[in-house]
Design a protein around this nucleic acid. Structure first.
Lengths: 230, 230
DNA sequence: CCTAATAATTAGGTATGCCTAAATTTGCAG
DNA sequence: CTGCAAATTTAGGCATACCTAATTATTAGG
């Protein structure tokens, strides 16, 4: 298939590499090793090497890559990655708010569409939504200029003993988990009271002023990010 | 790139071949010759032969193809083609009605997105729009079951002398033309009074009860379809 | 009915992006 | 400092979908 997208050779595949590097390298833009990329993208390590070489060799490269030493995004690469993340999160918000999608279906649809929408589409849905700052999972939406100020939330899984928190965000990694969390009222903005189960390796939590308690596995607790109560 | 889409090997490219065959073969499903397809798709004739052979050789083929004798859609191919057309026209309507796109920009965006939206997306925008029967250009939207009842409109270019008509639809072939027609009030549903310019090889038209007259080239008149006044 | 023009097909190539298997390189433990 | 294991890279392939050039079919004119 001939290359798609703008002047550059930006394809769906390239977008996904950039997103993965951004996500794995964190906001500070740490070096990312090929193995992590291969895992994240469900692709053979050799394919990663291949792609990184091509990306790095391009006229205005999207990544900085040194043999055997991992990759990081160039300024241009970071810009493109943030644009794709912006698309993704705006689309999710749009599907949820305007098209009444169930929360656990927005991710998959956005994952496909994010690569193909135009600047106009981006601008129009942003306007329609009142230029939202966070998506339905609580993740912040990068600005048009490519700025993203992360919240300094922590993972519930990293809480030592107990306390009361505000839910910052919920991972969209697994649709099933997401559906369950939503059903239990564990959504961004909710107040969460937490107590650690030392025996069961998990947590007992309740929402708001409710006395109903839920058990969460350590696994699930990694998908929830929390903030101290304001 | 690995195949995208459902069980079958439906790619963007295949979709476009099917749409072109549907469009060139008309509602009756006439045989289409490779040359026309090549022109329509801006592709070399050899590429068409190649693709048709693959499509026809598939386990449940989307086309019926005989060497040197053209192609037509199989039942499955027609179903898929109509689904893509439905996507296209629903998306156009959605962009126009919900996202306030200018009329001359809806086609290009829909042309890209039509291949990537899910059944759910289709269903949700259809619901949001109240299950519309025609798109903003006046083209009818195939049903979910793959039915499309064409209007028996005629091209303005085929009008012999003069008369009054209702505008059925306007082609989305050229954005510039479309923008001009919109600006002149030549949009689906409008009443059109026509008089032929024998000398200039074109038409003089006016809209509704307005006395302002516009000249239209023969070229442009091919892009306008009309119905007798009800 | 034969030939010339037109259409279609075959043959052989390009680029993308993925794969496996066989080298390498790196880095950590002893 | 050595040597093994993990990570990475190279080499060689596959599928898609496109291309050009050369060949073969079909069809329409004379």
């Amino acid at each position: 298939m001939p290359a798609r997208g703008q002047a550059n050779g930006n394809t769906e595949s390239v977008d996904n590499y950039l997103k993965a590097i951004l996500s794995l390298g964190g906001p500070e833009g740490r070096r990312v090793i090929s193995k992590s990329l291969a895992e994240r993208l469900s692709v053979a390590p050799a394919s990663v090497t291949n792609m990184l070489q091509k990306l790095a060799a391009a006229p205005s490269p999207l990544v900085e890559y040194e043999r055997h030493r991992g990759v990081k995004l160039s300024a241009a690469g970071r810009r493109r990655a943030l644009e794709v993340v912006r698309h993704h999160r705006l689309i999710e918000t749009f599907l949820y708010e305007v098209l009444d999608y169930p929360i656990d279906e927005v991710h998959e649809e956005a994952e496909r569409l994010e690569h193909f929408i135009s600047e106009r589409f981006e601008e129009r849905i942003a306007a329609k939504l009142g230029h939202p700052k966070i998506d339905p999972h609580g993740h912040c939406i990068p600005t048009m200029e490519g700025h993203m100020q992360e919240h300094d939330s922590i993972r519930l899984a990293d809480v030592v003993d107990e306390g009361t928190f505000v839910i910052d965000s919920v991972s969209d990694r697994d649709a099933g988990t997401l559906r369950q969390l939503e059903a239990s009222g564990i959504t961004p903005g909710a107040r969460l009271r937490v107590r650690k189960h030392t025996a069961l390796d998990g947590y007992s939590v309740s929402i708001g002023r409710s006395s109903k308690a839920f058990d969460l596995s350590q696994e699930t607790a990694r998908d929830i990010r929390i903030l101290p109560v304001a």
